[in-house]
Nucleic acid binder design. Sequence first.
RNA 1: GGAAGGGUGCCAGAGCGGACGAAUGGAGCGGUCUUGAAAACCGUCGAGGGUUUGCGCCCUCCGUGGGUUCGAAUCCCACCCCUUCCGCCA
Length: 428
Amino acid sequence: MLDLRMIRQNPDKVREGLAKKGEAAPIDEVLALDEQRRSLLTEVEQLKAKRNEVSEEVARLKREKQDAQHLIEEMRVVSQRIKELDDRVREVETKLQDLLLRIPNLPHESVHVGTSEDDNLEIRRWEEPRQFAFEPKPHWDLGVDLDIIDFERAAKVTGARFYFLKGLGARLERALINFMLDLHITEHGYTEVFPPFIVNAASATGTGQLPKFAEDMFKLEGMDYYLVPTAEVPVTNLYQDEILNMEDLPIYHAAYSACFRSEAGSHGRDTRGLVRVHQFNKVELVKFVAPETSYDELEKLTGNAEEVLKRLGLPYRVVLMSTADLGFSQSKKYDLEVWMPSYARYVEISSCSNFEDFQARRANIRFRREKGARPEFVHTLNGSGIAVGRCLAALIENYQQEDGSVVIPEVLRPYMGGLDRIAPAKKL
RNA sequence: GGAAGGGUGCCAGAGCGGACGAAUGGAGCGGUCUUGAAAACCGUCGAGGGUUUGCGCCCUCCGUGGGUUCGAAUCCCACCCCUUCCGCCA
């Protein structure tokens, strides 16, 4: 959520920023409602002050056994008027709030203007894609041939865009999760959190999924609960409605969670394999920091995510999103894209963003610089560190051998009982 | 799911229609005393909003949302959450 005062003071700056994102936000309407709200408040608050004053007078008269009937009559009318005005204030505030919750965040000044995903900027590249001396198989064939992924039975048991991992595939998934978490908590300074996989509407509003993107989540029947689309939601909301101490910042959390996405509107895209599914695993990194440090923290966060790919030996590139590809809540975002032989291109595997105070304002997460100082909103950041399913896909594709087996990267072997290779097994 | 009890400031805890934004402890902060510290004593100590150049003034907030009343932390209704017991259960 943008700061209403800021919109009031710099409406043009806001319009301009949103235009860069290709958004035409109802700023005029916001300003009008804000004006209305303040004028109603001035009126109703004067009446309330009057009422408080007279009520005290009534109390005094009653104590002195004097008649207060005329004052009571007079206040009956005033109270009625207050009630009417309060209703109007509420009405206006609801409208205003609803508009504000649907206005996207502004891009940071370091983000270049773009109009489509073609305008995104490659920042750096790590290692070059492997040259295969044979025709590499896509992971959906490899996984099936190795009998470590089963799409068909998942379609039977659940439906399209689900999968079973089996045998060493399941173990590899688990190994990746543990490897990533261990790296972040022991070397990058994150504190592990294991969050709920279901959140309420307030939390989903806090991080920005609601109210605009309700259809992207799975909602529980008859309840105000949603399956988490990412651990970002529960973990960012850990400190909702809290005032943190300056000395507690920065806070770094790493969290594993399953992620559930309805993938509404993506019919026909990436229909095969593990790239676009309704449920996947992810290790998420979340930071709460003082505003002046958040862009440095974004660079570090991105580096932490990159380290996962480096240690796994997976070629990748870092891409800076233009204003056109920034998400609703984001001020600046880097994507990590891993080389995917089956796509013959780089595929998004992590997204690292600074939200500045946009989420903090929605979720009411503040901090105090020192005792007695006014609370300020923190800046929140998060990034995948990294998406496990896509990582497994990239891994088996990049490490496949001509004989159909897959070599396990060195760093994962301790998590795989020392195993160095997944070989084709008898299919079940 | 059933029954009972409860949600008040950073924490503990009183208040149950009128001087209550809230007693009293404790913690924290500032000070006196002390070589220093402790103790003791004094003071201070919530958030949001409106208005104002500023000092300030005003409004709101006692789980949430409604209602009754001239006036609500206090009464009524609904919902949420917590605790205990029972049932069910990994």
